[in-house]
């Protein structure tokens, strides 16, 4: 295989070196921060030597052990990070499920129609997909203030669903195109309506595509900062804007380890997600490229 690809020994060594350096760059920051989140500030941001962050002499001095849960205690209990985490759960679950319901219906329709308006919808979706989210947010604020719906979770959820739609229908559109048309058309010949054909012929085979798309809807909702930071009030904040609001207050009070602990807490679900759904994420990332 290698000889077919046309790779020579020097090239293989070079790519091997790049790979090792890349792996260190990609993974080291996360492990460093996870480890450091169990130390005190004097160790994690040590003026003396960064070895302190590894062995934690100040942590031992201050708390009696080499590891401390002070940061987590401060973030989760004292600063009530659990509220933000719960809001994140509500937002991501709702956004993912509603996006998928809307998206499967829309994506299916787009994949089974070759009319002119199909193309216009797909092109509009492409433009919408490219719009920076914050430009849309500047359009929401004033109307939402006037309608008195600013600050509530349902508002942010429906906005995130809408922002998610262009991506979701593009992805599901190309997925449904890979399901043979004969499947639902033969069901319709047997007397099913279009919806029954979708329900009984398509739905049983669509789950791989739906799960992959769902992962990306989840990531968009989970990783969003622009929408949730601007559209939710203090009480309804989700984790990411909450971490940002930590920064303003913790730096003055010398409790930056709260923010570090919160950051690690918010990264853990993503770690688990990649661990279990690595194959789906990889196939989702490549889907658009392979199918054009």
């Amino acid at each position: 295989m290698d000889s077919k690809l046309g790779q020579s020994k020097p090239l293989m060594i070079a790519t091997g070196v790049v790979l090792v350096l890349w792996l260190i760059a990609a993974a080291f920051p996360f492990f460093w921060t996870v480890w450091g989140s169990f130390k005190v500030q004097a160790d994690f941001f040590s003026r003396a030597s960064f070895w302190d962050a590894i062995f934690g002499p100040a942590t031992t001095r201050q708390t009696g052990g080499a590891f401390t849960l002070d940061g987590y205690q401060g973030a989760w209990v004292e600063r009530e990070f659990y509220r933000a985490a719960w809001n994140t759960v509500i937002v991501t679950v709702c956004v993912t499920s509603i996006s998928l319901i809307f998206g499967t219906l829309g994506g299916y329709a787009l994949s089974r129609s070759a009319r002119k308006y199909t193309m216009w919808i797909l092109m509009a979706a492409l433009v919408f997909r490219a719009m920076p989210h914050i430009t849309l947010v500047s359009g929401y604020l004033l109307p939402f203030f006037e309608l008195n719906i600013w600050g509530y979770l349902p508002t942010a959820i429906i906005v995130l669903v809408a922002i998610n739609q262009p991506f979701t229908i593009w992805m599901l559109h190309s997925f449904f195109q890979s399901i043979p048309k004969d499947l639902d058309e033969s069901a319709m010949v047997d007397g099913c309506t279009r919806f029954q054909a979708f329900r009984w012929a398509i739905m049983p085979v669509m789950w791989p595509g739906v799960i992959t798309t769902g992962l990306f809807s989840f990531l968009l909702a989970y990783n969003d900062f622009a929408v949730t930071a601007m559209l939710l009030n203090q009480d309804n904040q989700t984790s990411v804007p909450k971490i940002n609001s930590f920064l303003g207050t913790v730096q003055t009070e010398g409790t930056i380890m709260y923010a570090v602990a919160a950051v690690v807490s918010a990264t853990v679900p993503l770690f688990i997600l990649v661990m279990f759904f690595q194959r789906q994420i990889v196939s989702g990332l490549t889907a658009g490229a392979v199918k054009g």
Binding site: I101, F102, G103, L105, G106, Y108, A109, L110, I121, A124, A125, F128, M131, L136, G139, Y140, P143, I158, V159, V161, A162, I163, Q165, P166, T168, I169, R194, F198
Partner: peptide
Amino acid sequence: FILPSAFAMVLFIALP
């Protein structure tokens, strides 16, 4: 089929 998706996009992307 397209209605819910199109409605969401018009209301929260095109109108904004």
